[in-house]
């Protein structure tokens, strides 16, 4: 287990530190084919770009539980991907000083043709888990995912609920100090969701750093002490979860009325 600082005093170095981080996307399609490239020439090269995130600066200390709020398409998931290292900032930097277990697009990496057992080995390994830990935690993962009878079934034959459970079981068991969660709480039925919640609480109690993106106010209040509010790609609020949530609620209500 990682050292667990009391959540009250976040001592030490920040585990995540973003400095003026920004990332730009292209509004139109980039050149998608040689034909376009040749026929339209340089003009097709640079379509208009917009900043999906701009000038984001914050520090997260070990053991903190941070919730990110904001409406759809404002850059929450992009922020998570920057922290996970699967997107790179165009400006500034996002420094992550510890391993990350990303619960983002979790089923994405699983390979349909391989069995559940092989997939677990592959995904846990790709996320940096050692062979010994995979072996030691294999049963635990299968148990958690409730797929005991399907260990040697090709992944593609599982139901979508099972797939998500396997993926969640693997990634949530990585021994990384930082856990990124992107609305996967919506996965599975009520019973499984309760189990996921339990797992998060275990992880938080163990001193892991949690970074949660969610639209569920209940979940955010339950797990997070600190909130980040993102609007139009900018970080416009950073404070206690309750305050951030009420500000967010106010603004959404205003917007709905307007």
């Amino acid at each position: 287990m990682t050292q667990s600082p009391r959540p009250a005093d976040f001592l030490g170095q920040p585990v995540i530190s973003a400095r003026n981080a920004g990332i730009a996307f292209h509004k139109g399609r980039r050149h998608r084919s040689l034909r376009d490239l040749i026929l339209r020439g340089q003009g097709a090269l640079r379509s208009e770009e917009f900043w999906g995130l701009r000038d984001i600066t914050f520090d997260v200390y070990p053991g903190e539980c941070v919730g990110v709020v904001g409406r759809n398409g404002q850059g929450k998931s992009t922020l998570l991907k920057l922290i996970a290292g699967v997107l790179l900032p165009d400006r500034g930097e996002v420094r992550v000083n510890a391993g990350v277990a990303p619960l983002i697009e979790i089923t994405g990496g699983f390979v349909g043709d391989l069995t559940v057992r092989e997939n677990i080995g592959l995904m846990a390994g790709l996320h940096g888990m050692s062979r010994q830990s995979i072996a030691a935690r294999f049963d635990e993962m299968v148990d958690f995912a409730e797929v005991e009878g399907f260990v040697d079934t090709p992944y593609k034959h599982l139901s979508s609920g099972m797939k998500a459970r396997v993926a969640f079981a693997v990634v949530s068991r990585l021994e990384e100090p930082i856990i990124l969660v992107d609305e996967v709480l919506a996965v599975g039925d009520k019973a499984f969701r309760r189990k996921c919640y339990g797992r998060f609480e275990e992880l938080i109690a163990a001193g892991r750093t949690l970074f949660l993106v969610s639209h569920s106010e209940k979940d955010l209040r339950r797990f997070c002490t600190r909130g980040l509010y993102i609007r139009d790609g900018s970080l416009i609020g950073d404070g206690p979860m309750d305050e951030v949530l009420s500000r967010y609620a106010e603004e959404t209500a205003d917007r709905a009325r307007a």
């Binding site: 003026n20 701009r54 000038d55 500034g92 900018s234």
Partner: peptide, 9 residues
Amino acid sequence: VQPAPVVGP
């Protein structure tokens, strides 16, 4: 939110 000037490096 005004498109904040992108500062930094």
